[in-house]
């Protein structure tokens, strides 16, 4: 009796999950399908069509797509790297030292994430043009700090706060200098948080659209913006657009899948305390 009831409940739950999965995955599948269709078939067929790799050839071989990917990697990767270099010491300071207005400062860092991108991007555009940062790697990496730095600082700070200060004392007494302690003792301990927040920051930076759209043009061309190119004013190459989107989504998806377990645990661990 009880068993039957539980079985029924299980079936119902699985059914609901499947419905949700279809709902969530459908756009992705749709995109994947389109990427194999020729332009003529895009609107005329749904599931039955003549698969072609023409779109892939066009995008990957005959356009500058590879360059766009490279730009994205440089900008997003650079942004995360800078965030780690700046963010880890900042997080350590926020966790360990007491200074006036500490909490206000920490909150301000977090608040960078609150502002709508479109709001800050216009003044930034003017400033960047004046300073010569417009359409440069440095400029984009800099502005991406708005995305990656707060995330990293807040997660890593939680980790530092979780390490008891006595461990540092113990290492001092054991004869280690501060730098040795930091790299030998503390870095291994914050690694889960550091890795997961850095990867998440990378994904966010990778997917960022507004900043590169407005703050860069020809020299630096991340994929998110580049995808737009396939939507010409006169003709829309949906097939190529789909290819560009699919390929650009791959790194994010691969990362997300690889670190899935790590990510949830790593972020929530810090989040409890932070």
């Amino acid at each position: 009796m009880k068993n039957n009831k539980q079985k029924g409940l299980n079936i119902l739950m699985n059914f609901l999950l499947i419905v949700y999965a279809v709902f969530a995955l459908f756009p992705l599948i749709w995109m994947l399908l389109i990427s194999f269709k020729s332009d003529t078939e895009v609107f005329t067929t749904t599931f039955i069509f003549h698969p072609t790799l023409a779109n892939y050839q066009e995008v990957l071989l005959r356009s500058d797509y590879i360059r766009y990917i490279r730009d994205s990697v440089i900008v997003a990767g650079g942004a995360v790297l800078v965030s780690i270099l700046v963010g880890v010491p900042a997080a350590y300071a926020l966790a360990r030292y007491n200074f006036p207005r500490k909490e206000e400062l920490a909150f301000q860092i977090l608040s960078y994430k609150f502002a709508p991108e479109i709001l800050v991007v216009l003044p930034l555009f003017m400033i960047y043009q004046k300073m010569g940062l417009y359409d440069s790697y440095v400029g984009l990496i800099w502005v991406y700090q708005l995305i990656s730095l707060p995330l990293l600082i807040w997660v890593v700070r939680g980790y530092f706060e979780d390490i008891s200060v006595e461990i540092e004392y113990a290492a001092q007494v054991d004869g280690y200098s501060w730098y040795q302690i930091f790299f030998k003792m503390l870095v291994p301990l914050i690694k889960p948080g550091l890795v997961s927040s850095a990867l998440l920051a990378f994904i966010f930076a990778w997917n960022c659209f507004t900043f590169p759209l407005i703050l860069s043009s020809n020299k630096v061309y991340p994929v998110t913006v580049a995808i737009m190119k396939y939507l010409g004013t006169d003709s829309a190459h949906y097939g190529q657009l789909a290819v560009a989107s699919t390929v650009s989504a791959i790194p994010a998806m691969v990362f997300a899948l690889c670190i899935q377990k790590h990510l949830v645990r790593g972020l929530s661990f810090g989040a409890v305390k932070g």
């Binding site: 008891s164 006595e166 461990i167 004392y169 113990a170 290492a171 001092q172 007494v173 054991d174 004869g175 280690y176 200098s177 003792m185 291994p188 301990l189």
Partner: peptide
């Protein structure tokens, strides 16, 4: 003299073992 150079051994209340 900083603590590294004082050559003292200390046992902490919460043990302060290196978890990794």
């Amino acid at each position: 003299v900083d603590s590294a150079h004082r050559n003292v051994a200390m046992v902490f209340e919460n043990y302060a073992l290196y978890p990794q």
